[in-house]
Structures are given as structure tokens and as C-alpha cells.
């Protein structure tokens, strides 16, 4: 089904993106022309078919690898924060969060 402009707005809010009116219209038409391709999926009978998350699981059992609980006690703050847009006293800074 085609997306309404309201849905475009709702998804934009979820995605933390903003579009002006003309951008919303362009987004709407491009997304909807893609969803025309999606309609052919309706014809496929997927009853009893398991979704495929990890492709190779088609031929071998894929299980989560677990790692031993050995802590790296090094302090990597400098490297981890070297790209921070705003930081002070070892904190990342953001506009005040209101609870």
C-alpha cells in the first residue's frame, strides 16, 4: 500500500530526520515506487518457511560464540573519545537531557 505523507513524517521522526514539504513529496514518490516492486512478494507462499537470519545456517548450524569473562583493564578513553564533537572532564557533552 502507498505511504501517506503522514507516514513519511512518522518514519522521519522515528529516524531523527527532517524533510521540508518538497523533500517529503520526493521521498514519498521514490519510496512508493519501490514498494510497487515489493507487491510481487505477496504472491509468494511462505507458509511454514523459517526466516533466514544468518545465510550460512542453510548448510551448517550457526551458534553464538561465547568468550571467557576476562576483563581488559586498560584505559582506552583517549582513543575512544578522540573524535567527540563535544567533551569535557572525560564526559561526552550533549544539550541538557530533560527527564
Amino acid at each position: 500500500m502507498p505511504l501517506s505523507l503522514e507516514e513519511i513524517q512518522r518514519i522521519a521522526n522515528l529516524s531523527k530526520l527532517a524533510f521540508d514539504e518538497s523533500q517529503s513529496l520526493a521521498m514519498q514518490s521514490k519510496i512508493n515506487s519501490f514498494f510497487e516492486l515489493v507487491e510481487q512478494m505477496d504472491a509468494v507462499d511462505t507458509a511454514g518457511v523459517e526466516p533466514l537470519f544468518h545465510p550460512v545456517s542453510v548448510v551448517q548450524e550457526i551458534a553464538l560464540r561465547l568468550q571467557d569473562d576476562v576483563a581488559d583493564t586498560g584505559n582506552h578513553r583517549a582513543g575512544n573519545m578522540q573524535n567527540a564533537p563535544a567533551a569535557e572532564n572525560g564526559y561526552f557533552l550533549v544539550p541538557k537531557v530533560i527527564e
Binding site: 512478494m41 509468494v44 511462505t46 518457511v49 523459517e50 526466516p51 533466514l52 537470519f53 545465510p55 542453510v58
Partner: peptide, 12 residues
């Protein structure tokens, strides 16, 4: 979810 099911059919 439907796409992931067709994905398995394609792999099969």
C-alpha cells in the same frame, strides 16, 4: 519477516 522467509526460499 516475509522478506527473510523468501530469502530462505532463494537460498534453497
Amino acid at each position: 519477516l516475509k522478506a527473510l522467509k523468501i530469502r530462505r526460499i532463494i537460498a534453497n
